[in-house]
Design a protein around this nucleic acid. Structure first.
Lengths: 202, 202
DNA sequence: TAGCATTGTGGCACTGAGTGTCAAATGGCT
DNA sequence: AGCCATTTGACACTCAGTGCCACAATGCTA
């Protein structure tokens, strides 16, 4: 099992969780202090009291230490996108995105700290965009749900692309403001503007 | 000078251009045959009759061999975005994007071949998204031009994000169709749908 | 609680990307 | 030909990432 279970794990499971947390904590501390590229995996491993080899058992790459949260967010998005009965696809998407944004807000400080590291490195920024792409795929699928016709699916994909593109800007500005802006409100506003892309048949 | 001048260069300049072309050609041939990750820089250098060290003099990373065209496209976009007299910002953006798409079409085969390589590798895909981001920055600047007020700039950025997100989908579907779809027509269509984001003041 | 199977860990050696350095080769010019 | 500037190739190095194997810790059972 690669999963870190939250419930009833023995000494073994606890140690694993602690090791992972130690690595994450050490890495973020070092990244914040000296920047991502200037920190080597050896240093992180040393600071976390594990061997270099063990580091790579927990995280496939050095970058992955930073993106654990995003994985969780994406999973949450996928679940929130499950269609509710008698709900239009766009409404589902809207509801799901707002709910995920709220999760974002709940961990504000952590999210902001991570973004601060990511924003300084082009490699990390590129990696970050991959999550947008995954979100796009989920949204496209959700929007296309129930729509028939060759053109409808294409429209759904274009709308999903536009939504992700617009929301990334909203999130980015929220981060730049230090979390002071109204993330959910501005997200809703942007979504309303884009609603036309889906509702208008012609 | 790092530029490869096209006009009146001596033997030196010609050799440089030829070396760069040899590397590019060898790399793309190997990538197409065996996939990006399975090809080492040593192999490319060997196939191109240069030393490994020289390879890195021409291309900062292995990935960069593939993205030369995109750099040129971005430069073309920036030039096309220069504001024309008495032209609304959105019209400028529209005109610029269409003109760049036409360039795309002119080198159809090359573009498709590159995308075929990129699409198979997550790392390359991530790297590819960086160009979208750069295009976004250019579009946001162009759209914000002449608009005053704190909110107008934000709207411009959101619109730019949506445009890039939507157009990426259009381009992607064009690539997936093997270049058979109407890239320019569908791009225009998507832009028209998004025009509301800019024109509507409320 | 002693013993055994399972599983995680650390060390070692390896490949591959990317960089600094320097001597040798090559093109440009007179 | 001969001098100067630039480019090249070779070598050595760092760092990310991986396969392998011996060893240690844990969990389970008698």
């Amino acid at each position: 099992m690669t999963e870190t279970e939250t419930t009833d794990e023995g000494l073994r499971g606890r140690k694993k969780r602690e090791a992972k947390e130690a690595i994450t904590a050490a890495a973020k501390r070092l990244f914040t202090a000296r920047g991502f590229p200037a920190v080597t995996v050896d240093e992180i491993a040393l600071a976390a009291n594990v061997s270099r080899r063990t580091f790579f058992r927990y995280f496939p790459t050095k970058e992955d230490v930073l993106f654990g949260r995003r994985e969780a967010q994406l999973a949450a998005l996928e679940i929130a996108l499950e269609p509710a009965p008698a709900e239009a696809p766009f409404a589902t998407v809207r509801r799901a995105l707002i709910s995920v944004s709220s999760l974002h807000l709940a961990e504000k400080e952590l999210v902001l700290a991570e973004h601060a590291i990511v924003a300084k490195s082009a490699e990390l920024l590129a990696r970050d965009l991959e999550w947008d792409r995954k979100a796009f795929l989920l949204l496209a699928r959700a929007l296309a749900r129930g729509s028939r016709g060759k053109d409808a699916a294409r429209r759904a994909r274009i709308a999903a692309g536009a939504i992700v593109g617009a929301l990334r800007v909203v999130i980015e500005e929220w981060v730049e403001s230090g979390g002071k802006r109204d993330l959910v409100g501005e997200g809703e506003e942007a979504l309303d503007l884009l609603a036309a892309l889906v509702s208008k048949p012609q």
